[in-house]
Design a protein around this nucleic acid. Structure first.
Lengths: 196, 196
DNA sequence: GAGTTTGTTTGACAGTTGTCAAGGAAACTC
DNA sequence: GAGTTTCCTTGACAACTGTCAAACAAACTC
């Protein structure tokens, strides 16, 4: 087992524990000891693999991004009509809303933290970019399938859809049974307006 | 000077200090002592006027809402054409983005916190509702002036515009000179699509 | 103006936090 | 298998947190 890989593996294990804890408690309430408690290690080990707390969180954010921005790739590649793409997109989006709620809560929390914590900004910006590209792939494919063109630019499309999704994530705790359907409905209202 | 009013005045003074500090440091980094330091009082006085920290923050949120949701009322009332309404709306929105950045940062921070801190949820929900109504007043007036109807419902319209605004707030620190114009541009792309 | 209520300061408390160093265990090297 | 490196635990530290009570000052009451 390569030394580099082993270190990286430990980092990943710690990051996954940290992400789990962060997703449950949020940034403000998560301490290094709490993260270590929810892992197989003790609190001291964190400083063996990470310089400090921000370094760990920053690593978590970067690790997280590798898992999230390819969520709709299969739908984009396999859909053969606009309607199929839209329904597949809605299905996947409401699914991740329900099944990965803590991660989405954490993402919006961390993005807010990045406004106050400069060290988080580059990582958050990188993810935001990935997500924008993800939305843009969906929208351009949607336009292609319907023989139209996107009628807004990529940052706009991302901000709009992200606004709807964030609203759903924030509202999900209060209304878990209704919010996914509402999100679907609202996306259906808006998606056709983004092509012309 | 009435006793009730005096208590309320002190609460407001403390809330304004707290909002100032919170807007600069964010929720996670703001302590009661820091709030007191930025006010004319000492840290002990907080517990004379507020039960605990959450009670203070919750009061701050409620106080804040009374100032923010009427920002566009004058524009809505005085505009005589759709274009006038739009340009007045854009002007006011980019203005508050620039002039009240800390408050907007704080709002998005607190909304994220409300996903983890149940006690904040009712207050955050109340503000979200006010903001949704604010956007809806603008959109219905816009439709009226252009002899059309809104083509999306109120929660959708709010989520879309809020998504664009949050993107601008998050990006403002990195690019203060370009972001307001980009926000204007993106709103112009989308506003005509919200009526039909 | 003495006495009481109201408002504010000060200092202390218990608990938590990030950080780090010293020591031990485990793995690896030759 | 002795010695060395790598990894992990433990315990400690200084700083900071929310909370509260006791002392103090100011304002008000009669």
């Amino acid at each position: 087992m390569s030394g580099i890989d082993k270190i990286e593996r430990r980092r990943i294990a710690l990051a996954e524990s940290a992400l789990k804890t962060l997703g449950e408690l949020g940034y403000a309430r998560t301490s290094l000891r709490e993260i270590a408690n929810n892992s197989e290690f003790t609190h001291g080990v964190v400083h063996y693999y990470f310089r400090d707390k921000i370094d760990l969180i920053s690593y978590c954010v970067r690790y997280y991004k590798t898992k999230c921005a390819r969520r709709y790739d299969e739908v984009v590649e396999t859909a053969t009509t606009g309607d199929e793409l839209v329904s597949g997109f809605l299905a996947r989006m409401t699914q991740t809303l329900v099944e990965e709620t803590p991660m989405h809560k954490l993402w919006y929390d961390l993005r807010a933290q990045s406004m106050f914590e400069d060290q988080l900004r580059p990582d958050v910006e990188a993810i935001d970019e990935l997500l924008e590209e993800m939305i843009w792939r969906i929208l351009t494919r949607y336009a292609e399938l319907t023989r139209t063109k996107p009628s807004v630019d990529a940052p706009t499309a991302y901000a709009l859809i992200d606004g709807l999704f964030e609203q759903a994530v924030v509202g999900y705790a209060a209304n878990p049974e209704k919010v996914p359907a509402l999100l679907s409905d609202r996306l259906l209202q808006i998606l056709p307006k983004l092509i012309a």
